[in-house]
Simulated assay, not measured.
Amino acid sequence: MSDDSSIVKNDDLSIQIANILKNNLNTQTTNHKLSDSLQISIKLNSQNYALWARMIRVAIGGKSKALLTHLSGNPPNKTDEKYEQWEQDDLVVFSWLIQNIEPSLASNLTEFPTSKTLWDALVVTYSSGKDKLQTFDLHVKANEFKQNGLPLEDFWIVLQGIWGEIERRDPNPMKCADDITAYNTIRAEQKLFQFLNALDQKFDPIKREILRWDPLPTAEAAYAAVRKETAHQNILRTGSSPSQGIAAGLITTEAEGAGYATQRRPIVKSSGIPTRVDKSKLKCTHCGMVKHTKEQCFKLVGYPEWWGDGHKKGKKDEGEASVTVGNLKATNSDAYNRTGAVMAVAADFVEQDTGHQDGNDYWTWH
């Protein structure tokens, strides 16, 4: 009997020692984790409570899920054997909260006795709760927000911030799984439309393409498509810059070659359709012919070099001017002054090709 009782006592002692060692090990591990500081990316101020509250809860839960009860649960009785450990944990949570509040605000919050009382005070002071006016303002911002030249990434971050605040203040109210899915689908489509509507006008082609997709993508997928298209455009624009410069140079050269003619009377409209000037009321006082004036008469200003064989050339004593199309050189100062008129008539002839010789070495203009 004595041997059996001694064996039982030894077993009980071994179990007690094992439990003590286990408890000490868990306590050391827990205390090591709780002794670490806790810092999140933002500090609480008067404007960011909703975001801050979400982030601090996630951070505390990451340390220990049991510690989240310190923000909502009541403490045990002081006579309870667990009270000492609870108080130690609560002091750690309290310090984490204070560390992540702006110093100007934290200085007035250190006198609260527990983490829960501090948390409740923050909710009352800084949370707007279900303030429908602020919810309304957020929905207005989401619908009216425009890119207005912002970089695509910066624009997307701002818009996501607005949507996140709406989700926190106006969460999905549905209970049934099917209703929850349907509500989320509707809200996702609204976010897509808000994103596309806010983009700058230069993205209109890709916006139209996205709206043709079936089914419609999420706003996130649409952003990825726009961002990819923007990268492609930047690559192509960089590669085509030299050719654009060459084309611009050609246009400039042609404009300079046209000289006074382009300044006095444009030959082509902005739409690309040739113009036709009504000359039916014009009459030359020098040769008596119609549809041109004395200043435009080839008899006085001379015939251009492109005038074909069989047409009479003007003589120098009649005021011949040697006109070169493109550089507008003239050998006679009087003819040079009339170069613009010559070019206007010549260009109109080349473009319309409606004149004909009347048999008397005069040119009849139509």
Rank of each mutant, 00 (worst) to 15 (best):
E81A: 14
I98A: 08
L236G: 04
S64Q: 05
N19K: 13
L21D: 14
I15M: 14
S243T: 04
L25P: 04
K299A: 13
T181M: 12
K207A: 09
L250Q: 05
T110Y: 06
G257D: 12
N10T: 14
E102M: 07
T293R: 10
E111D: 12
A219P: 09
L211V: 02
W307Q: 12
S127V: 00
R237I: 02
F94L: 03
A321S: 15
R276H: 13
S64Y: 01
A219Y: 10
H232I: 08
K291Q: 12
N23L: 11
I206F: 04
S241L: 10
T79P: 00
E189L: 10
V342E: 06
F155H: 14
N23K: 08
Y126A: 00
N26H: 10
L51F: 10
Q99G: 04
L13K: 15
E229G: 15
K207I: 15
L44F: 08
N234M: 08
A121E: 01
S95D: 11
V301K: 12
Y83K: 00
G245F: 07
L152C: 03
T238E: 15
Q47H: 14
G149M: 01
M1T: 04
H32N: 12
E209L: 14
E87S: 09
T117E: 15
Y223W: 10
R168H: 09
L97H: 06
N74G: 05
N74C: 06
K281V: 05
N24V: 11
R237V: 05
T117R: 12
Q233D: 14
A321E: 09
D178E: 11
L152E: 02
D170L: 02
G257P: 07
S35R: 09
S270D: 08
G129L: 04
A231Y: 13
V93H: 01
D4W: 04
K141A: 05
